[in-house]
Design a protein around this nucleic acid. Structure first.
Lengths: 151, 151
DNA sequence: GGACCATCGTTCATGACTGTACTATCTAAC
DNA sequence: GTTAGATAGTACAGTCATGAACGATGGTCC
């Protein structure tokens, strides 16, 4: 039976159901990305860099990924160890460290991107165009009430 | 601007939007639970035990929370250190360790439950009854396609 | 030119989660 | 009965995230 966090007498059936669904989804995407030596977090950073077209300060990555700088430090460490990212010094600002994807990083990112697109189509299969739109809109309105202020 | 994982040219706009929304939601609930010295994970375990009415093997908790046993070991460690949970030996099975909430654990769980119920109402405010139902159903159908096999 | 403060990246501690390995125990089959 | 395999809890290593503290650098204001 469904005894999970979103179960009947949960204090927040809707909220926990959504969180639970998102975790399942994350698991699926992690699985897809795993075949390309990536994770959601790593893909996020890599995609950000590929998209930027030029070396990017770690702080800027943190801002785009909406996480703290120390997290990006660690992710960059792992991506660098994997040979997917390169750190360089910023000649303009000696405090800053720039990151850029290696050729392998670009390749992994492109492959992962394609795999994710396929998976998204597969996932959206059961929903009509209208239903997709409605779902996104409703979730947006629901979670909008949880956003602090400036988000 | 929205450059997040759910941004326009993301390979999975819908999936990442949902994951992003769930993270925001989680953040809000963590904040609510924080006032009661709890986290989502701790509350989940505690609630499971309070609900069970009797001491429960750690494995059973892991099953209900749908996570690995080693995770419950750690959560039980922290909850025990917080004085919210007690471990006892199972007289029937000497391999097993039973967990039960302390009085403080029950109290914290009840208080957190009440706070979460309030928050859920606040969050659901912007949605009509119909919209809540539709949202839950659509998310369920969407993520259903991501469930491995046995649910 | 200093004093001050913001910013940059890193380090460390902590939490939550996974998966692997290990010991102890239970159970079934021989 | 002993052996073989499943199960219980734990230990350990690794990932992803946070927040506090720190040294180095960049500006600004006198």
């Amino acid at each position: 039976m469904n005894d999970g966090p979103g179960c009947v007498n949960s204090p927040c059936p809707v909220a926990f159901a959504l969180i639970d669904a998102a975790r399942t989804l994350e698991g699926r995407l992690e699985q897809v990305l795993g075949s390309h030596q990536l994770s959601i977090a790593k893909f996020g950073v890599l995609r950000c860099l590929v998209h930027a077209e030029r070396p990017m300060p770690l702080s800027a990555i943190a801002q785009r990924q909406r996480c703290v700088r120390s997290n990006i430090t660690q992710l960059a460490d792992r991506l660098e160890a994997d040979g997917l990212l390169r750190r360089t010094d910023d000649p303009q600002d000696r405090r800053a460290v720039l990151a850029e994807p290696t050729a392998a990083g670009r390749a992994a990112c492109a492959a992962a991107d394609a795999a994710l697109r396929l998976e998204e189509e597969r996932l959206l299969g059961p929903l009509s165009t209208d239903e997709r739109r409605v779902m996104t809109a409703l979730v947006g309105r629901y979670v909008g009430a949880a956003v602090p202020v400036g988000g």
